[in-house]
């Protein structure tokens, strides 16, 4: 997992007053594991777009960290 992506997650968690995570796995679920709601996911999308230039939710719902990583890898 790229540390840049981990940091983006932690910025979102921090902004919501939640504790940070030290690692994420492919199976980490955005809503049930990290407790992110739709507004948090909007912020996550915006931060990922700003860093990587891709809107991860543009083509439908994303549920896990792995699905985000796949989208970012597809860019390379």
């Amino acid at each position: 997992m790229e540390s840049k992506l981990l940091e983006i997650f932690n910025v979102v968690l921090r902004n919501r007053g939640r504790s940070e995570v030290s690692q994420l796995t492919e199976n980490t679920h955005l809503r049930s594991d990290l407790g992110l709601d739709s507004l948090d996911l909007a912020e996550l999308t915006v931060r990922i777009e700003s860093e990587y230039g891709i809107d991860i939710f543009e083509e439908g719902i994303v549920n896990t960290v792995g699905e985000i990583v796949n989208k970012l890898n597809a860019l390379k």
């Binding site: 902004n15 909007a42 912020e43 999308t45 915006v46």
Partner: peptide
């Protein structure tokens, strides 16, 4: 605009 505001808190 909302996305801009989210990005910049």
């Amino acid at each position: 605009v909302l996305r801009n505001m989210l990005l910049h808190n």
